[in-house]
Structures are given as C-alpha cells and as structure tokens.
Design a protein around this nucleic acid. Sequence first.
DNA 1: CCACTTCCCTAACAAGTGTTTGGTAGGTTA
DNA 2: TAACCTACCAAACACTTGTTAGGGAAGTGG
Lengths: 237, 237
Amino acid sequence: MPTNKPEAQREAQPEAQPEAKRGAQPAAAPRAKPAARKKPQVTPSPERRRELLDTAAEVFAAQGYNATTVRKIADAAGMLAGSLYYHFDSKESMLDEILSAFLTELWDGYDAVLAADLGPRETIEALVTESFREIDRHRAAVAIYQKESRTLSAQPRFHYLSDSQVKFEKAWLGTLERGVAAQVFRADLDIRLTYRFVRDTVWVAASWYRPGGQHSPDEIARQYLSMVLDGIALRPT
Amino acid sequence: MPTNKPEAQREAQPEAQPEAKRGAQPAAAPRAKPAARKKPQVTPSPERRRELLDTAAEVFAAQGYNATTVRKIADAAGMLAGSLYYHFDSKESMLDEILSAFLTELWDGYDAVLAADLGPRETIEALVTESFREIDRHRAAVAIYQKESRTLSAQPRFHYLSDSQVKFEKAWLGTLERGVAAQVFRADLDIRLTYRFVRDTVWVAASWYRPGGQHSPDEIARQYLSMVLDGIALRPT
DNA sequence: CCACTTCCCTAACAAGTGTTTGGTAGGTTA
DNA sequence: TAACCTACCAAACACTTGTTAGGGAAGTGG
C-alpha cells in the first residue's frame, strides 16, 4: 500500500539544506532558524483549528494560495494575522493540513470501492459517484488541489501529492484496462487519453460546483456517467 | 547567493503610519501617481516584445501569475528586472497582453466556424477541433487563462474575460440546444451540465498537453469528440 | 486570593515585491 | 565628429509579506 497520508510532520528537519544555488525561494523565510524547531508548550483546541482551517481553505480556494495573505485569512476569521500562529506554525502548514486531510478522506472512500471488487463498469461508476460526493464535502480543498497540486508536488513537503496521483492513476487506468479486456469499454481509444478525459471531467466540476444547487452530487454523478459512458449524441433506435 | 542584491537599505520605518484602517491592498502600487499618465518617448521593437511575452507566458503558466516575480521573468529572459520596464509598463500589462492576444486569435477561429452555419453536430466538432488547435498554439496562455481567469475577471481591466466567457457560453450552449431540438443530441440531460462537461473536457487538456507529443491536436480532437459524442462504453452490435 | 491555561492583540523585523530613476554601451545617421 | 536612438544595467524606493516576541484579558481549579 503506497502511503497517502503524511500524518503529521512534527519531526525536526534533519538539517538545514546547504542552499543549493539560487537562494530564490518562492516565499519568505525571514528569521534564521536555529536548527532546532521550536516546540510550543501550548495546546490549541482541535475544534478551533478545524474552524480556522475551513475558513482558510475557503480563502485559498477563492483567491489562490499565493495570492492569499495570512492577513486575509485572519480577516476572514475575525482576528489578526499574528494570532493565527498560535494555532499553526506557518501558512504552508495550513495548506498542508487542508490537503492531506482531504486526501485521507478521499482514499478512505476509494479504497472501500476498490476493495469491493466490482466489475470494471461498476467500479468506474462507484469511483465517479464517490468523487462527486467528495467534491460536495470538500469543494474548497478540491479546488485548491486542482489549482496548486502541480506546482506543490515539486516541494518535498508535498511529495505525498505525487504519491497520491500515482495511486490514483493506477486505480483508474487499471480499471479502464480491465474494462477493455472484458469488452466492456471501447478498445479503439488511446487508453491514457481516456483516463485523462474521465479524470478531468470529474474533478474540474469542483470549479463550478456549489453545494445546495439544484442537483445533488449523486444526480450529477449519474448524468456525468451517462455522458461519459454513452455519449451525448442521440442514437437512432 | 542570489543574483544581485540591493545590499543595504537601512531605512527604519519612521513612525507608525496613519494607516487608514485595514491597509491591506491586493497588490503593490508604491509610488503615488501624479494623476497624469507618463508617456514614454521610447519605441521598443515589437519583435522583442513578442519574445519577452512568450517567455513571460511560459513562466506564468509554470508557476502561476502571483507566484511569478518580475525578477524570475527577467531571469528567464536573461536580463534584470528593471529592464523589463523598458518594454512594458507593468507586470499586469504583460498578463493583459498575453491573454488578450490569445482571446483575439481564439475568436478569429470561433467566429469563422460559427459563420459557416453548419449543423449542430458539425459545429460542435469544428469548435472542439479549433479549440485543440488553439491549445496547441497557445498552450501557455490557455493554462494561464484556466488558472487565473476566474479571479482576474473581477478586476475592471480584465472584464473582457467575462465578456468572452459569456459569448463563449452563448455559442456552445446555443449549438447544443439546436442539436437537442434537431434530435441530434440527447434531450434527457441537463443542458447546462452538458455544456460545462463539453467545455471542461476540452480546455483542461491544456494542463497536460505538450506540443510535439504522440498525438496531433486534430487526432486528440477526434478521439475526444468520439468519447463525448458516443461514450466510452462498448455497445453490443 | 493565586497559579495556570487558552486565545488573542500590539508591534515590530527582515526579506521580498513591483517599479522608477539615472546612466551607458553600442549602433546608426549626418 | 557629434547627435541620436535602442536596449539594457545598477541601485535604490516604498510598500507588502510571512513570522515572531511579549503581553494581557478571560476563564478554571485549588
């Protein structure tokens, strides 16, 4: 089982990297780190953290991670920028926690589907339905993931995004291949193109989906599946 | 050590500024503008501008607009940050020029298709094919558009993005509706869902498409159309 | 009453940001 | 030769950024 969950990264960085060449880091890292991570003696309540993470996720999703300043997050939460650092130790940690919490839940659902050992078509149907349910529950996190995952996965801290993506591809592509072999899916299509097609059609929905709309996640999944499986063209009967 | 540092700027902030209320402006606009627009007497060559815009678009697409500093663009172009301002009057202008140039070309193609007055199915096919060609030629601009258009269109300067999007929706949705009326497309689907489905499947391709891959834009368009129109499920014959 | 904890604020720091100003090397024209 | 133009560099400026110290109000337990 590949790892999909970074759990918590409270271990100290082994060593300050020797600063490869160009010191141009994407963000700011002002104070010199004294090699030993600070260990705050305080214990913020997990419920408050969840609350703050939710509003942070909302702002990240709306404005983009880089365009979001900690002052904006604090504003949305009704407090001042510095106060956030009582609960989190950096802006990046917030992002990290938002994304890893989402991925953990996502894989709980996916793993259950995959363990059910359904046929190829039924597996695809279940995966798509599960995906739309996740979008319904974590739309902010999904939107952030969509926008930032490519650039983030270069950073070591967010390497679990790549891991997840690999596992993701394995599950979907494998199912599609099984379906082609079982003559359930068409064999005349480039399978990787098909994979990207299905994957993208599902997840971009997070960019326009708003919970409480006229369609439930399951209804959207049903229609999407109908389009993907049978096409939008009317067939002569 | 980074490229070139201003080294010393021992300018302590004099005093706590009046600081209206929440001075948090979205971006930087340092100098006070004296109400009269500056008119540079210089005339940079258009070819050089195009060159620089191309590299800027590449960096924007790779890192995201906000995460891209003008110093990074200058780096990629082999010059210093300030030198860019000989050719452009702001970072935002570069973005603007990149996006509007792309949209202009896109609509040249779309308008030609729409003027041809084809049937609904043929119109969709032509629009999709045209779209993949545009992705092939402007993949950086398309990627930027995908990532930033939603947030940008709030700014007055980029209002033309919204205009374009409205026109876009009108063309595609109208064609789909014509198709349903003509019994070419299925009538049992939510038409707006179908629209978003088709639109998204096409344009997200810009996030993974790389020119010079194993499939030509036309070939990708052909397979995408086959999936969208007929579905990926194998039909019993 | 005091000690302790939780949660926030005030105020700053240092690095990074987009942008401007003044200069200048090299080419072209007269 | 001088005048002129293009395209860049060097250095700074003003403001924003993530982050940190120190402090204090409110609540809880003894």
